[in-house]
Design a protein around this nucleic acid. Structure first.
Lengths: 401, 401
DNA sequence: TGTAGGTTAGTTAGGTTAATTAACTAACGA
DNA sequence: TCGTTAGTTAATTAACCTAACTAACCTACA
């Protein structure tokens, strides 16, 4: 029983380097890998042969020789169909699942209403959907490497536990343990915002940047941090809670009361829920207002507030612009501290980004000493599922990472 | 000329693991290292022997056998005197230099006034001081491994350039290049606050924590971040600029003007300079005030403001408490985002920490959702020089890191 | 048109380095 | 004396490297 742990580890490492090199430079020849990777030609050849054997790499065609002559190189490609990964985004209203290949091409999608399956079990339904997709698209289930999942709440990724997810009534829910009843492949979970940040870094507006702040502005405000190319979760998995920032000291003195439990200051002045509430209140105090009827009937949504502001409605504009200002200072605070390459905005605000983004940029760029790219999500509602896939690919120990 | 790069790298890695293991568990036997480090006994023996040869490790005495008998183990110790490292803190008023052993014991200290040698060159004088210390303490100059330096301004550590350091009139000063004229050993530089953060993590109140925020409150407000055990400098070496945080939106509307160039909002309401200025202004408007004379004569310092507040002087208390509040919200903002294990306060405020710290804690602990340890620096004015030594030990590629 | 000479891609053979296992000696307690 | 633990030795395994090779191509010149 021989096992040269350390030497074998070295080989694995080199194999990863070679595969990485192919992924980033395909098509590429063995010789070129050798020169780029600081590994000798024979070793590269050996490792490539193994990768080809294992189907991670394909030899496809022959390139052109250099102008000075010489044998033509064998073209190596990363086999992006060598395996498939499932990405799931569990949301308060919808659970969305995709199956992707190894470079993030979405093969198939499926989703269901959260509320409809909360009683019978979300995992059970996810399992059904996944099986359905595998069947319809005739995927080889042996090629499914595993699944990544984004959860709307506080998670402990290393323990596989969802500590608290109010929108789906989970408290200390042992997700991974439960999931093992349905799935035989490895599964990784994380907070939905963290996962979206990974998505943006993998395929979105923060592609291949090292230091990223992803801010999700929806009902509340949360953020995901990627630092030194690594997801940063904080010492107790509570990093990124931008909703708790304070951008107006005076409001705090008047004994600030969050609009509901577990809500921070910033989200209670700049979150979608808060915006809608505030606009509704203001209008209800103006009986002559054209929206008085609507506002008395039911609370206006944040989304509605933004569309009204866009139309030029005065009260809405007041409320919305104030919220944007708060958010801008929150961003300035975060960016002063973190100095990221890029800040990506996601979540519900995306729908009104044409109104919000220029106003945000104006304030942020004015007061921020360092430069930063401030953008909205490119992936939009795909950020989470793709991020979930990315989470899996990062966490799953294989030749792929 | 054979050079098995990869294999040699593997050996170096293992050697580092072994030395690390000895550092953390000394005294320790070869056998114990083998079981802890997942490296086989013969390999450990070989590596230890080399480390002993190279003088990094000492065999000192023989331990006791286990109660079940067996040969008594040879006690291995890390040789903390195997080399010495110089740490220098360049400050606006003082340049302080120490020589340390490898675990941070300060062997000797020396300092001089910055202003006195700004013309003739700080490096020249540092060189003199270092030579002086080596002579007086009869240190073997071959054992000096190198030097770390903390600089009060913006630095580009990888290029060895000081981008801007107003207090010592450096603009794009090629520090490392200049230093090579005086010193033959390797030198590393970084921003003074970053360096202080390293110090606190090495030997201070943030000892061996993974995620740390060090905040220096002096004339201005800056911070140093350690994330995943690594110094985080940001994408353009501008991370940690807490001074630019905004904690009161309303002040910004009234076209906030920084009290001087390159000054952010938070430091212009909570920095030492700002506090002194504001108190002076207030008192100057009150002709009957007992401090009217003093304030008219010359501007009060921040330090004076704090001591007055401690004595119970009303106006000072007003000014100081307001500043503390602002700082508290700045800390809340940072901690919400980063969720560090510990926040360490340093800089000028330390002198009044008995007044400040409880008040800060009250606000921070009240509004922060996650828990965090909020403390003042333990190392006080040693944080920077020790951090500079730590910087060197981290950056210098050797068996030590 | 065809062939020699130079060039690059990839493989093979032989040798080096480092880590492992298994078996050993050393030293100890009971 | 036996069982146990510390540390070493010898033989083996695994990975990498260099150097020299074959394969395949270009150019140029006869």
């Amino acid at each position: 029983m021989s096992s040269n742990r350390n030497l074998i580890l070295l080989k694995r490492t080199n194999k990863k380097i070679v595969l990485q090199c192919i992924k980033e430079n395909q098509p590429i020849s063995r010789a070129e890998i050798a020169s780029k990777s600081q590994i000798s030609k024979p070793t590269v050849s050996l490792l490539v042969d193994e990768l080809v054997q294992e189907n991670w790499v394909l030899e496809k065609g022959i390139g052109v020789a250099s102008s000075q002559g010489g044998r033509r190189p064998i073209q190596l490609y990363f086999n992006e169909k060598a395996g498939y990964v499932i990405g799931t985004d569990i949301g308060g209203t919808k659970v969305k699942t995709v199956i992707c290949d190894l470079v993030g091409n979405i093969i198939c999608t499926s989703s269901f209403k959260t509320s409809q399956y909360l009683q019978t079990g979300l995992l059970k339904q996810i399992h059904k959907e996944v099986n359905g997709m595998i069947q319809s698209y005739q995927l080889d289930s042996n090629k499914i490497l595993g699944m990544g999942v984004g959860v709307p709440g506080i998670t402990e990724p290393n323990k596989g536990v969802v500590v608290e997810a109010p929108s789906i009534n989970w408290v200390r829910y042992p997700f991974i343990t439960e999931a093992k009843r349905y799935f035989s492949f490895p599964i990784y979970i994380d907070n939905d915002v963290n996962v979206a940040a990974l998505g943006e870094q993998w395929l979105g507006n923060a592609k291949s940047k090292e230091n990223i702040l992803f801010i999700a502005v929806g009902t509340g405000i949360g953020s995901g941090l990627i630092i030194h190319n690594q997801l940063y979760r904080g010492s107790s998995c509570a990093a990124g809670e931008m909703g708790y920032m304070v951008t107006d000291k005076n409001d705090m003195k008047n004994e600030f009361k969050p609009i509901f439990h577990r809500y921070g200051y910033l989200e209670s002045v700049a979150g979608g829920k808060a915006i809608g509430e505030r606009l509704t209140n203001l209008i209800q105090q103006k009986p002559g207002h054209p929206l008085f009827e609507e506002a008395s009937h039911s609370e206006l949504t944040g989304e509605r507030a933004f569309s009204l502001a866009k139309e030029g409605e005065e009260t809405a504009r007041l409320v919305v612009d104030d919220a944007i200002e708060h958010l801008a200072y929150g961003i300035i605070n975060a960016a002063s501290l973190l100095n990221p390459e890029v800040i990506v905005l996601g979540g519900g605000v995306l729908k009104s980004s044409d109104y919000i983004l220029p106003r945000l940029r104006e304030i942020v760029y004015h007061y921020l000493p360092s430069t930063v790219e401030l953008n909205t999500s490119q992936l939009e509602d795909h950020a989470e599922v793709l991020g979930a896939v990315s989470l899996f690919l990062r966490e799953y120990e294989s030749v792929l990472n």
